[in-house]
Nucleic acid binder design. Structure first.
Lengths: 338, 338
DNA sequence: CTGAAAGCGCTTACAG
DNA sequence: CTGAAAGCGCTTACAG
């Protein structure tokens, strides 16, 4: 806890009042633009306030009002550009609406996540937008709801309960990606990266559905689990190439996994796009300039973040309406890699 | 401004007091672990507090104390993984120290930056860690200092004034990168990406110094300015290849610029590492798995963020000591690209 | 350990 | 428009 080193007392509404020769109540009314005060007086007050360096103490006001315009945002993995893009979308939308972001990073630690959410609660966050760490128990939803705090869950769903949610249609996305490869004639298609969890299951499901639609059975050896990171994609691709008959293409769990796969293929001298096809998932801005540019399933991460923020804003203004749900519709973005 | 939809009154220290059969003062003392209260009573109070769902109201406490444990962090470009890594470093360090992060993204808009910093001030941030948007006037330093708010400037310096600063030795970094290429026999070396600004000038300076040390004059045509983005690196590399005599290597303004250059080279079928050498700058985690893996100047972005946070913590605990300065020492990280 | 009191900086009626 | 008052939830002496 740091004490501010303020040598002088803070200037308050009272200082403004005496400097402007009006009452404290008048100043307060001016600050919130009340029509009760005539413009002439208001202008004077504002001028004096600026002149003596008055700073509105939002905390004091919010404490009195029992209100808050800070929103907690809890992110599991900011090293993945996907979440960076999502966060930027959230923050932009919140600022536009006059809110400010209390941000915390869990790095996939459920324990840290618990601590951070409690901290946000103590800091009077008006609501929490959460992308849960891997392994988060579904009971967290009810717990936070019991706090009386609006909660928006993002990207990873959290059980069957009822809550506001912003995510993407994962099964449809990988279905489209896999289908694209199948239509280009690939038959032996790997699935790279990712590990158990709702998102993984849905994406794998879409891959399987596409194979099935083409009356192909998916060889389980072609399923190469790995961390959803560049390193994971790199490793998984190596394993995939050891499988016989050899795959000619792969659908990746996400874009960074795909980037890792591109690195592995490059290292082996395999020409991506010609000798091997790679599909990513997410639609990172970076995919336009990877080597080669990555074909991917675009779920517009920035828009997803904005949607999550919008759900929160909506919930704050209408606490008791039905739960909201945003599901990004995937779009194929075709580049050189497939 | 959102009103919390709290149907019931908040439970306060007073509720805990009456439920535990002690006084309000006692509860307050227990909550801050005062030794004045005997352990038996303290345990009882804590138990009762948990049982009735009491939540410490940190705002009220901080208002009374004239203190704050929230730190504002203002980032210019979160789409660049460099800043994402820096932010993660900052946040981790702050949380460790019991602080929480008020985060805002300027997207290089000076105007938005001004608005956001004022907002943080109104929210009683205890200090601000700022990576200034391009074009930020150096006068901002004095302005914030006049607010009485500790300020740590990051990555981009802000004039000759006196302020706490965390950055890297940019001239040394590009000197090392260029020197490495020269020692491998390259003579015609481009400098890709970046635009005027303190960081750019220093990095260019290091490149020139290395050329000079080898008694080479830098052909101005080899200097290809561009946005410090993947797209910028992609574009700059194209321009570089039009210059005669043709360059055989390039030092890039930063890693993402280098990634763009890799994409452009890949598209042209030029084998990076064999036919053309690329050096990046930053040391992003991603460089280990680009295609090909990128040789770069590592300034350890995460550690830089932690350092910035440490400077802030130090400043908060000792407001009047001499200004602090952290300058990351660059280290060459050699991979396949050069 | 208790209990009454003052104060952090604001907002909100309310009587004038 | 004013002025006195109460209250948001805490902390900090202080007398007992």
């Amino acid at each position: 806890m740091a004490k501010s080193a303020a040598p002088r007392k803070n200037t308050t509404i009272l200082d403004v009042a005496s400097a402007a020769g009006v009452s404290k109540s008048t100043v307060s009314l001016v600050l919130k633009g009340s029509p009760l005060i005539k413009e002439e007086t208001a202008a004077k007050v504002r001028e004096v306030a600026a002149h003596i360096g008055y700073v509105y103490n939002r905390r004091a006001a919010e404490m009195r009002n029992q209100s808050s315009n800070v929103i907690g945002v809890v992110i599991n993995d900011l090293m993945n550009p996907f979440f960076a893009e999502v966060l930027v979308g959230i923050e932009r939308k919140l600022v536009e609406a006059g809110f400010i972001t209390l941000m915390a990073h869990t790095n996939e630690s459920v324990e840290l996540q618990t601590k951070l959410m409690h901290s946000m609660r103590e800091h009077s966050a008006a609501g929490i937008i959460l992308c849960p760490a891997l392994g988060t128990p579904a009971t967290l939803v009810k717990e936070v709801q019991a706090w009386g705090l609006p909660l928006v869950v993002m990207v990873r769903s959290l059980g069957k309960g009822s809550y506001d949610y912003a995510g993407s249609d994962n099964a449809l996305g990988t279905f489209m990606a896999t289908n694209h490869l199948l239509e280009k004639g690939h038959r032996c298609i790997g699935f790279l990266g990712g590990q158990s969890g709702a998102v993984f299951n849905d994406r794998l499901e879409g891959y399987r559905a596409a194979m099935k639609k083409h009356r192909l059975k998916a060889n389980p050896d072609l399923l190469c689990n790995a961390l959803p990171t560049r390193q994971g994609g790199y490793d998984a691709l190596q394993r995939l190439l050891d499988v016989e008959p050899r795959a000619t293409a792969a659908v990746c769990y996400n874009d960074i996994t795909a980037f890792g796969a591109l690195a592995a293929l490059g290292e082996r001298g395999i020409a991506v796009g010609r000798d091997f096809a790679i599909m990513g998932f997410d639609g990172l801005l970076d995919t336009a300039h990877s080597n080669p540019p990555l074909s991917t399933v675009d779920i517009r991460p920035g828009a997803l973040g904005e949607a999550a923020a919008s759900l929160m804003l909506e919930r704050l203004s209408r606490p008791d309406t039905a739960r909201l749900r945003y599901l990004a519709t995937p779009k194929l973005l075709l580049r050189a890699s497939a």
